[in-house]
Write a protein that binds this DNA or RNA. Structure first.
Length: 203
DNA sequence: CGGCCGATTATCT
DNA sequence: GATAATCGGCCGG
């Protein structure tokens, strides 16, 4: 399988968050292949970024972010939700990209079973906790290598998205984070029409 | 559609 | 002991 290489992830998080749009998130489970196109992502870059979990320094939770790029950093929040990130930047420098939304492509029956709410509507898998529920992503996959074709979770190149079809905004949910981190435009979203990307999204 | 609010618990100070 | 990279339900427009 043709996967995004480690060199893809070994760049600043804001670059990876933009470039990962259109890529295909692939989940292998019970002999099935679940696929979704990444349509929204956010960058979290370094201990100086007060919106990033690494701003406390290294802890047990965020340790994976301090490791090599191309691994999954998965954490639990709000007492009930799992969030999926791809670790970015060089080994030792903590940074990651939060995968916030996917467009379902393969395994729709499984997605529907795991995530019946809003199934087959434009808002089906457009949230970071929605997609982890649909793809059965939780703590067990924390630290998994996204660049290994044998992994239960990986990412393929998918489609390249034109700049004119990308919206940039401040990151979501950083209520108590001070400026400038609260407003820095490190959220990247594919422009959607009626719940689908525009027809001409490829470069 | 947009805003407010409660749920629920691992993780951190 | 407080907080949280969210979600869904309920309300008003």
């Amino acid at each position: 399988m043709n996967l995004l290489k480690r060199s893809f992830y070994n760049r600043p998080a804001s670059i990876v968050a933009r470039e990962i749009l259109g890529a295909h998130l692939v989940r292998l489970i019970d002999g099935q292949c679940l696929v979704g196109m990444i349509t929204e992502a956010e960058a979290y870059q370094g201990e100086e970024d007060l919106g990033c979990h690494a701003h406390y320094g290294k802890t047990r939770r965020n340790a994976v972010m301090y490791g090599p790029p191309g691994r999954a950093y998965i954490y639990f929040t709000y007492g009930m939700h799992w969030m999926l990130n791809a670790v970015t930047g060089q080994d030792g420098s903590p940074a990651a990209v939060l995968i916030r939304a996917i467009q379902p492509l393969e395994g729709l029956d499984v997605f529907e079973q795991n995530r019946p709410n809003l199934a087959h509507t434009p808002h089906w898998l457009d949230g970071p906790a929605k997609l982890t529920q649909a793809m059965l992503v939780d703590r067990r996959l924390n630290g998994i290598d996204l660049c290994d074709p044998n992994s239960e979770l990986s990412i393929t190149p998918g489609e390249a998205i034109l700049e004119e079809n990308v919206t940039k905004t401040a990151r979501i949910g950083l209520y108590t984070v001070p400026e400038p981190w609260k407003s820095i435009p490190w959220r990247f979203v594919i422009k959607m029409e009626k719940g689908r990307p525009r027809d001409e999204i490829q470069k």
